[in-house]
């Protein structure tokens, strides 16, 4: 079942088309990675899907509802949760207070347990290590009960072991709860290890979309992206 679909997404900044006519779809229970070199338009794409950036053209649909003109808060209420490239949490509050703001009475201990922060409810957010701030942000994104999760660079700034455990956690959410996940990621191992489908962006345009194996074999992708080096870029 298609949960998120976008058609013809376009955004230009002063004549430069950061995103140019991108179409994409994410199904429930699927993990879709969006990759591409720096400046390919990934964050702009995310901004338009999340509602932080208004597209010049194109449509975004969430579960059949056209949300192109919706504000972020309305998208949140329709079941869109997201994390940001630089983790956004409420730094002046404790972990528990953070979640109390985001949920409307959902089971707090369960949520904390899920993201691996069990027992941390009383710790001030400002005192958390960065990996734990990322976990808290994920808990905040999950607190509203989303059906679609947008994650911009979910593992940036984390140690390799932490990356794997976070992505395993997210994969579990997709598999068990039918959550649709769209994420950007620089770490190629993470991408090929966890994504069901991969979208490749280059200079604002979608140049390839498909299963990891197909993407790995795609000549254009190898040329513009993977060809840059050993895949660690």
């Amino acid at each position: 079942m298609t949960l998120l679909s976008a058609a013809g997404l376009t955004k230009a900044y002063g004549g430069v088309r950061a995103v140019d006519g991108v179409d994409l779809a994410v199904d429930a229970g699927q993990m879709v990675a969006m990759i591409g070199p720096n400046g390919a338009g990934k964050s702009t794409c995310f901004g338009m899907i999340g509602g932080q950036i208004r597209p010049d053209a194109g449509r975004v649909q969430l579960d059949g509802v056209d949300i192109t003109a919706y504000l972020p808060k309305a998208r949140a209420r329709l079941g869109l949760g997201r994390t940001f490239q630089v983790a956004q949490v409420f730094t002046s509050m404790s972990v528990g207070e953070n979640l109390a703001v985001a949920t409307r009475g959902a089971a707090l201990p369960l949520l904390l347990d899920r993201v691996g922060l069990a027992g941390a409810a009383d710790r001030p957010a400002a005192a958390l290590a960065y990996a734990d701030i990322k976990r808290l942000e994920l808990a905040l994104a999950l607190a509203t009960g989303p059906r679609l999760l947008l994650m911009d660079e979910p593992t940036a700034g984390m140690a390799p072991a932490e990356r794997r455990s976070l992505m395993t956690l997210i994969a579990g959410l997709a598999r068990d709860d039918g959550l649709a996940v769209l994420f950007t990621e620089h770490d190629i191992d993470v991408v090929f290890g966890h994504a069901n489908r991969i979208l490749v962006l280059d200079r604002g345009k979608l140049i390839a979309a498909g299963a990891p194996a197909a993407i790995r074999a795609d000549a254009r992708v190898r040329a513009v992206y993977l060809g840059h080096g050993d895949g660690s870029c």
Partner: peptide, 17 residues
């Protein structure tokens, strides 16, 4: 608390609705 959340991070506050 919600008002303080908006101060801490307007982006996050909007994203949680």
């Amino acid at each position: 608390h919600a008002i303080r959340a908006v101060r801490d991070s307007p982006l996050r506050a909007e994203a949680v609705g």
